[in-house]
Amino acid sequence: MSYAAWIILTASLVGLSCGLIGVFLILRKMAMMSDAISHTVLLGIVCAYLVTKEVSGPAMLVGAILAGLLTAFLVQWLHSLDIQQEASIGIVFTTLFAIGVILIATSVGNAHLDVQHALMGEITFIPWNTTVLPLIGSVPKATVLLAFVFVVALIVIIAFYKEWKLTSFDPALAASLGIPVLFMHYVFMTLVSITTVASFDAVGAIMVVAMLITPASSAYLWTDRLSVMLLLSCAFGVISAVIGYFIALWLDTSISGSMAFATGILFLISFIFSPKHGILAKYVRPTKAY
């Protein structure tokens, strides 16, 4: 495959996995948790590097999961001590991120890891860093990792679909039916962590937030069904990735930046033209029909 094809495929996988996870982030009103985790996984990656002395997929995944869970746990803990949810998120992720930055500067400082790369990502270089898979041949490492994470996330979401729906809509009823709400919260945080770390190489910590939240928010405007929202969100993620690639090509600029820009454009279009919740529709049909 050509370099362009690998880049588009990788970007599309980012769109797919982020679109899938993003829907539940929005519905659970945890959009800002993704911002927090996208930063704290840096600490996880740095720690994984310090332990294994290499930047490898599995070690990074484990590091990210631990960092993501630590973030979720600390936020929950501070919140239980009467600190506002938003404030606890702000305190926890900036502190953990700062530790990551200090570690990079003091202990790791070499070509493998740098803050610039972690924040912005560089999808352009992904096709150069390959591994050989049986039957398929030479494949970029980041693409393999993303495909793996997407499959895991998809299986977990589909297998426990009704439980995800119920714990998102009405956690009190879920708890009274005996569904382990808190445990599922941490499982979900794990999914957010692995999705974030897998997308990290491609789009970086900041753009991954755009890919997680914006396609899902756009999808929310188009439908009243959760299953359709999931499909639309994934579709919007992929469309943004592809459009973003060509915008970057056309303007000769950052691919990850263009992808995030494309998600914004899609959201704007949805916000104006969506037949159900768009602002145009509100003018045409001013009252709700009961």
Partner: peptide
């Protein structure tokens, strides 16, 4: 505003 309909909400009572 959760994306679901009335029948689906009732069905949630059966998830257990």
């Amino acid at each position: 505003d959760f994306p679901t309909n009335a029948l689906d909400v009732v069905m949630m009572g059966l998830y257990g």
